[in-house]
């Protein structure tokens, strides 16, 4: 499955995929919501201690100075997976679309940075070992197909395992597209890139000062019990001191919590983001400057998106752009 451009094209549009499954003899599935909305398997909330990077403990620090515009571009990715057919034996055939893009800010408007900074990929996600080689070949003759199982893996499988695997495969493709875009910017872009999500898993971007990761979800809070009240009590315009986030399969990055908006009647994590930046050059001054950039992105608000408390408008626009080019 190669990247495609212009975005409206695709190696396996839903129409292509449906034609392929019909010809292969699969039963067409009823229209259902995307797997992303059906298969929610969140990791359990947890606290994970992180090593302080700025001082010896997590403390509150008011971001000095006014918000300042510093972000040059935004990176975001989207994915959508749908079961479009079932192979005999209850095996779901999933059509997945992923897209990622870097949108450059020019004259207060987001525009395309360059043609290869928009990645759109479409494919049919099929458990090869489960459907057999004949079906795999038949489907592959009509559209791009991706195997959702590991090589040599054997059954039996729970039927829902197939959809979970397909969803994971689509997610990996989306992360891959985001990584390509992020690395492209870090290599050739000019100015800080606002990455929606962490940068620790985004290849070379994890080490680049041009990439700023902003994490909105907080299933894992990188504080221990003593520091937790400090994070939850952050006021708008305040940040925690920086700490290091490490993970076995991810690059270590500098990180800190930043309160964008007062939670007011919301829960304590509302309006809170965790910022990730390359460890190299991660000083207190750098963290303050990046925080000022992010505080500047509070306007305009991203309503009506429900995540507006922590979501930058540039990210929302990038998402809207990706939805537009994938439909």
């Amino acid at each position: 499955m190669g990247p495609t451009y212009p975005p409206s094209g695709g190696a396996a549009s839903v129409r292509d995929a449906l034609r392929a499954v019909r010809q292969a003899g699969a039963a067409e599935a009823a229209s259902e919501p995307p797997l992303e909305l059906r298969l929610v398997a969140p990791e359990p909330p947890r606290l994970q201690r992180a090593e302080p990077l700025e001082g010896d403990a997590v403390r509150v620090r008011r971001v000095p100075g006014d918000p300042v515009v510093g972000i040059a571009a935004f990176l975001d990715g989207i994915q959508e997976s749908r079961v479009i057919a079932h192979w005999p034996g209850g095996i779901p055939l999933v059509h997945g679309t992923v897209a990622a893009a870097v949108r450059l800010r020019r004259s207060r408007t987001l525009v395309a940075w360059r043609s290869d900074s928009v990645r759109v990929e479409r494919a049919l996600f099929v458990p090869r070992a489960a459907v057999g080689e004949a079906a795999w070949d038949a489907l592959g003759a009509e559209c791009d197909v991706r195997d959702t199982l590991a090589r040599g893996e054997e059954g039996p499988w729970h039927p829902q395992e197939f959809t979970a695997r397909a969803l994971s495969a689509v997610q990996r493709r989306r992360e891959s597209a985001e990584t390509v875009c992020a690395e492209l910017w870090c290599a050739e872009g000019d100015g800080p890139l606002f990455v929606d999500g962490g940068i620790a898993a985004v290849g070379a971007a994890a080490h680049s000062t041009r990439a700023i990761g902003v994490v909105k979800s907080h299933r894992t809070l990188y504080v221990d019990g003593d520091a937790l009240p400090v994070v939850l009590a952050l006021a708008a315009g305040e940040r925690t001191t920086a700490f290091t986030v490490t993970s076995p399969r991810r690059a270590p990055v500098a990180s800190w919590y930043l309160r964008l908006r007062e939670p007011a009647a919301h829960d304590a994590l509302w309006g809170l983001v965790r910022v990730e930046a390359a460890l190299d050059g991660a000083t207190a001054e750098r963290a303050d400057l990046v925080s000022r950039w992010l505080l500047a992105e509070r306007a305009p608000v991203s309503l009506p998106d429900p995540r507006w408390g922590a979501m930058a408008y540039g990210v929302r626009l990038t998402e809207e752009y990706l939805r537009a080019v994938t439909r």
Binding site: V69, T109, E297, A299, V301, E320
Partner: peptide, 28 residues
């Protein structure tokens, strides 16, 4: 624009019309 209600703009500008013009990105 993509604004669903004028109230959202008020919220985004903290009730200050001048602040709305200082936003780094214009609404689509």
């Amino acid at each position: 624009t993509d604004l669903q209600t004028p109230l959202h703009d008020v919220i985004g500008a903290d009730g200050d019309p001048a602040a709305a013009t200082r936003a780094p990105t214009d609404r689509t």
